[in-house]
Design a protein around this nucleic acid. Structure first.
Lengths: 179, 179
DNA sequence: TTGACATACTCAACAATTTGAGTATACTAT
DNA sequence: ATAGTATACTCAAATTGTTGAGTATGTCAA
């Protein structure tokens, strides 16, 4: 599964503690994979057991010690093997659409309000991504390294995802508001 | 969770057997919720246990008997209650993006090939949705009933999702092909 | 006549995800 | 003073999702 591989990919760059990974996941990585704290800790435990990552306890003053994880040779091999396997596009599972399907059971305003709320959330997220784009990628894209381009591609995916969602919300609101 | 509610919403229109639901899910409903046969049968069992749906065994000649499920009053209430609760946009979990993040570990052609393969799958799915749009909604959209408009809105979501994915694949291929 | 495919469903096991509580320390603002 | 927030992690339980086998019958084409 992909959480393990996302962690391995992240640890490929530098060492992280579980907590650091969680923060990174809730911030920058949110646009390609989402995971809770508990999931990350458990996955780290599994990966260490199988030898794909190794930890070192860093004593800290004034705050709890942290366990810093690094990827091992074995982990890099595991990641490479996975990269060579094909992956299927992920299934769509969107609660809002299920609600739209059943919308006739409640007053029309209920579903319209809900779509508007989602539009608002996506607009918010879009502006977060736009901020990141401006901060991290102000230069010409062809000046970037391959690695940076890869990261930029995922950010562009997040950006266009939010734009598509907003456009759909507008279309649906127009369609379902008519009398 | 939404699978139960998707089933309830579907049974709101007419009675279905588990097998019929599965077929409907793999065909028309694929663009808002996906579920396997086993998930559907298990969920039907749970829903019947809690009294949200009721079944009737239909003896058939020449093929196995089927268990037809209908929604109950209790099920309709359950569905309505759920419709009134807000839902959060679903988390993005896209394996392809994890692969893009880790792409530097393998030859560039590996990830480019994979993106092209995904582009092909999305193009295929887009044409399926376009076919459905032409077959089921050739008329003026404002002529449709509210219920039909709701269904159409979900189809439009599927259509624009596939278009967005194809556009992203093109962007990513262009970005990552440069030297 | 054999094998593929469709109908119709059940059972079991496992993997992944979510939810919530719990432990501990330290900093900061009211 | 104390409440909120951040750091840092663990444990348990329930739900949801995937994988694969198993049971039965009927149709259709090679």
């Amino acid at each position: 599964m992909a959480l393990a591989h996302t962690i391995l990919a992240t640890l490929g760059d530098e060492a992280y503690s579980g907590y650091d990974l969680w923060k990174k996941f809730s911030q920058t990585s949110a646009y390609y994979w989402q995971a809770s704290q508990q999931q990350i800790y458990r996955e780290l435990g599994k990966l260490e057991k199988e030898g794909a990552i190794a930890s070192e306890i860093i004593p800290q003053e004034g705050r709890p010690n942290k366990k810093l994880y690094k990827i091992t040779e074995k982990g890099i091999e595991k990641l490479k093997d996975w990269l060579l396997e094909p992956a299927e596009p992920m299934a769509i599972r969107e609660e809002l659409l299920v609600k739209v399907i059943a919308a006739e059971l409640v007053p029309r305003s209920v579903i319209l309000q809900e779509i508007k709320r989602h539009r608002q959330i996506h607009t918010q997220q879009l502006s977060v991504y736009k901020e990141i784009e401006q901060q991290k990628f102000p230069e010409q894209v062809d000046q970037l390294s391959f690695k940076q381009k890869c990261f930029y591609a995922t950010l562009r995916c997040g950006l266009s995802y939010e734009s598509y969602r907003i456009a759909w919300c507008d279309e649906a609101i127009a369609l379902l508001s008519e009398d």
